[in-house]
Amino acid sequence: MTATTQGFAAIQQRDLVNQIADSLTEALLRGDFAPGVHLAEAQLARDFGVSRAPVREAARLLESRGMLVSQPRRGFFVRTFSAEELEDVFDLRLCLERHAIGLLAGQFSEYKESALTRQLDTMRQVAEHGTAAEQIEADVAFHRMLCEFSGNRRLLKVFDELCHEMRFCILLIGQLYDDPRRVADSHQPVLDALRTGDDAACEAAIDYHIGIAQQRVVEMFREREGI
């Protein structure tokens, strides 16, 4: 095999891994796998009609995205949180983004408005035609922009550290909506508030945006826990 054909083989393998990861993300978004469930590598390999290697790589990819966790000699499991832990994640996220949008409101430029508008357009496009994984990443990217554009690099660093938990929360939010376009559209009031330049309006918009998600996701988990 030449160096060129070896490269082609690597590309094909990587494409297969991504396809399996996307399919698993779609299944997680539909709620096919409950939190805490063990994903049997051998069974998934049979279901996909592939060897176990690409399934294992796809699972590692989803682990890096915060959707699965691995346990030594036991394999991969769907990530789970208690309702209380989810409350903590949402509370921290709200503190970060409330501060970020307050800082951003005072320095909102045409460039930042244009970038956020393009990202919202991207979210709507992937809601129509993209995979569940792409929808989650586009959502995270919008909120990361809010933190990045605030100018507080420490805040952005903490946000990035929270991203694993955030991706899982966004995955759960997606289970609450039949139409992913509605998730994308829910970001429009945040951008509209920024355009006003009013600190109170911006804080109210982000409080509502994250607060509604927090309330519904935590309520869903409390029902699962029988609380």
Rank of each mutant, 00 (worst) to 15 (best):
A100E: 10
I11S: 07
H187N: 11
A132N: 01
Q125M: 11
R144I: 00
R153C: 03
G197V: 06
G31T: 04
I206V: 15
T196P: 03
T196N: 03
G211W: 03
Q135M: 07
A27C: 06
R60P: 01
T122G: 08
Q135D: 02
Y111C: 06
L28P: 00
E225K: 01
I136T: 11
G106H: 04
H38E: 10
G49K: 14
D185F: 04
Q125F: 10
V37E: 15
R224P: 01
T122L: 08
D22I: 06
I206Q: 01
S23E: 09
L146R: 04
G130N: 07
T117W: 08
T25G: 02
T4V: 15
Q13D: 14
D121K: 09
Q19K: 06
P72R: 13
L86G: 08
A34Q: 15
R224A: 12
T131V: 13
I136H: 13
T80I: 06
F168E: 00
G211F: 04
A34L: 15
A10H: 15
E87L: 03
L176K: 04
A58R: 08
A9T: 12
T117A: 14
F90T: 00
V218E: 05
I210Q: 01
K157A: 07
E148G: 02
L61P: 02
L62H: 02
Q125V: 09
Q119P: 04
V217Y: 09
E57V: 10
D121L: 06
H164D: 14
P54A: 00
A27N: 04
E113L: 07
F77I: 08
H99Y: 13
A213I: 00
L194M: 03
D192K: 10
D192F: 05
D32S: 13
G7R: 14
G7L: 14
D22E: 11
G31P: 00
V126T: 12
L68C: 09
F149A: 07
A213L: 04
V158K: 11
A53T: 13
M67V: 04
F8S: 12
A141E: 11
T196Q: 03
Q214F: 10
T4D: 12
L194R: 01
E87C: 07
T2K: 05
N152Q: 04
E97C: 11
D192Q: 14
